[in-house]
């Protein structure tokens, strides 16, 4: 009975990017949108549960993705919901190996009474993010709902891009190195610090940014070096690494000392008892890189303004497929996926 009570309603944890969300997708959405088993040669469908879907068009792939964005507060240190909406979709395309965006769509749902000035500020921010990404919004839609029927503003963006080869999140092989393109945990901790009335005085900024330029640079400089890619958004690096490891059938060993994490992010992490590995990033990617190409990939990443803090953080092993193991310098532990929305804890 209590089991039922928990399952007959959608809960916040079902949108938090962790295991609960994956189960909801598997149980509800995959059942509805499963593709005919005949088709897959020319199709990456929802069943792949990758960052985007893809359809074969001649000798290339058309990659598509869609993302709805809700965030409280809509303006946060380092960004806003508009920038998030553009970066989220552009980055999902980029980590599929498709950094050259053909076009974006933008659908906005507004709550009655939402300040016009805020909307314009958000749209201006979207425009700036589009310029950074070299992307254009080519179609849009607006709806308004009654007061209280929606929380301020919801933005959906969809994107399309062409790619000669797809980079999947399932392509890790034993021996591959795991590279992160920059510091971890900035977005999630910045938003967390403004929520729950933590009353912290700290300079924390979200990393929200389109990183398709960075991905393009590394794909060009080291063709074929990247075996797998994923952006560690909701659920953080822990969830992204779990998905990559289990889909690829490899183990991942992470060296904690190598994780690039800002001191302020570590500080908040200690105060509220939340592991930066579990926290969202909105301008980073995790790359599986062939061991012989790691030097070149790092060099290219670090030469780019959005990749200055790039680091090798781990290695893939044949052993323990699907497990993500962290070497802390004191010992080793399994990295668990977050169960739901992250909340500050006291014990």
């Amino acid at each position: 009975m209590s089991h039922l009570a928990a399952d007959d309603r959608i809960m916040l944890k079902h949108g938090a990017g962790g295991r609960a969300m994956r189960r909801l997708i598997e149980d509800a959405f995959l059942r509805a949108f499963a593709t005919d088993p005949e088709v897959p040669a020319g199709l990456v469908g929802v069943a792949a549960m990758d960052d985007g879907g893809a359809v074969r068009l001649g000798d290339r792939w058309l990659v598509m993705t869609t993302d709805s964005h809700v965030i409280q507060p809509p303006f946060f240190p380092g960004g806003d919901i508009g920038r998030l909406a553009v970066a989220g979709t552009v980055n999902d395309l980029a980590v599929m190996g498709a950094p050259d965006v053909l076009g974006l769509t933008c659908a906005v749902i507004l709550e009655e009474g939402f300040p016009r000035a805020d909307l314009e500020r958000i749209l201006a921010s979207m425009r700036i993010a589009c310029d950074e990404a070299g992307a254009t919004v080519i179609s849009g839609d607006t709806k308004v709902m009654g007061k209280g029927e929606i929380d301020g503003i919801v933005i959906n963006t969809a994107g399309m891009a062409l790619a000669p080869h797809l980079v999947r999140d399932a392509g890790l092989r034993p021996g591959d190195r795991i590279v992160v393109t920059g510091t971890l945990g900035d977005h999630g901790m910045a938003v967390m610090a403004t929520r729950h009335g933590l009353a912290l005085d700290v300079d924390l900024r979200s990393d929200v940014a389109p990183i398709n330029g960075l991905i393009r640079a590394v794909m060009t400089a080291a063709p074929g070096a990247i075996t797998a890619m994923k952006d560690p958004t909701r659920g953080g690096a822990a969830t992204a690494l779990h998905e990559m490891a289990s889909k690829s059938g490899v183990g991942v060993m992470v060296d904690e000392a190598a994780l690039p994490v800002r001191d302020t992010v570590r500080g908040v992490a200690e105060l509220v008892g939340i592991d930066p590995l579990l926290v969202a990033n909105e301008g980073k990617a995790l790359l599986g890189v062939r061991a012989d190409a790691v030097g070149r990939v790092l060099e290219t990443l670090r030469a780019h303004p959005r990749g200055a803090d790039a680091a090798v953080i781990g290695v893939c092993t044949e052993d323990r497929p699907g497990m993500v193991i962290l070497d802390t310098g004191f010992g080793r532990r399994l990295v668990a996926e977050p169960e739901g929305e992250l909340l500050p804890r006291i014990c």
Binding site: V294, V312, G314, R332
Partner: peptide
């Protein structure tokens, strides 16, 4: 049992490429 798991990057011959870079950001936590 994680006691037997090797440390990442240790005792590997091919650490040359990323060896020094790996420790650039190394920090033992605050």
């Amino acid at each position: 049992d994680l006691t037997a798991v090797a440390r990442p990057f240790q005792g590997r011959d091919d650490r040359g490429a990323e060896g020094p870079a790996l420790r650039d950001n190394a920090s033992r936590g605050p």
